[in-house]
Design a binder for these strands. Sequence first.
DNA 1: CTCGAAAATCAACTGAGTTGCAAGTATATT
DNA 2: AATATACTTGCAACTCAGTTGATTTTCGAG
Lengths: 143, 143
Amino acid sequence: MSDRCNFSHWLALEGLRATPVRLAVLEILGEALRALRAQEILELIRTRRRVNKVTVYRILEDFTRRGMVRKLSLEGRVNHFELACEHHPPHPHFQCQTCREVQCLEPVALNQMWTELRGPVGNRADHIDIKVEGLCHKCRDMA
Amino acid sequence: MSDRCNFSHWLALEGLRATPVRLAVLEILGEALRALRAQEILELIRTRRRVNKVTVYRILEDFTRRGMVRKLSLEGRVNHFELACEHHPPHPHFQCQTCREVQCLEPVALNQMWTELRGPVGNRADHIDIKVEGLCHKCRDMA
DNA sequence: CTCGAAAATCAACTGAGTTGCAAGTATATT
DNA sequence: AATATACTTGCAACTCAGTTGATTTTCGAG
């Protein structure tokens, strides 16, 4: 997953150049154990190289449009991102209401809910997003 | 639901004064068939009376903390709100990726998913939020 | 080499939501 | 009623993640 060659190949398949910033974004997301905020990604790339935030935002937006990463709309107008590859299938998330950190939960069987959730006839359902809110064990210990 | 007396009583129970702006927020949310953006609520109140946006934001934040309304974190950093009373139990939502409008879906049996979704031991799960993204019938017809 | 497209940069902007403080209004106390 | 107190609203300035447009740099094909 953190294999640079895979990412280069992936980018080639998308018709994108394997630039250092694109590779860094994919590597960082591939090594992350949780969904990352755009700013976290930016800061992590900046430990390696000088980069403008606009570049990272534009790359994340492009990857999202292509379905290479998933953008999570969580509490507090800060987007989180995670890699969307066969190793990271769609799954529910947990967000702590105190520290705002995001954890990945195990994928649950969504198929049986799918038809039930389809909603008003005529709507086309593309994606299902499940979020659990609460208090993580770290913040629970503090309180 | 759009009964002013109910809302006054509800506010009294919360130890809040039944001011015109608070009542207007509750009435508007009570009559809405879908979750509303803060700005929509603001504009609807302004058809009745002069009000500062800060007042509405503060009331919505206060109501959310008290559990009187639910704040939905959807796509784009704009919050949506809906009334949280016995007539509007928690339920999944559908959001159109094109027009961004939000529809309410039927509540599904969440209890069997609850334990499965609880996630890492030690986390306290307070709330589950299910969102379906796709294309609503209106936008589908246009395309 | 060099030309055109893709990629990155810069600075300035956007806009939903927030903050601090002043002014107004209701409720309680004397 | 008069005063004190707490609650509510308004105003203006601010925050900050994210965006836009124009310009410069880099890369790869011919």
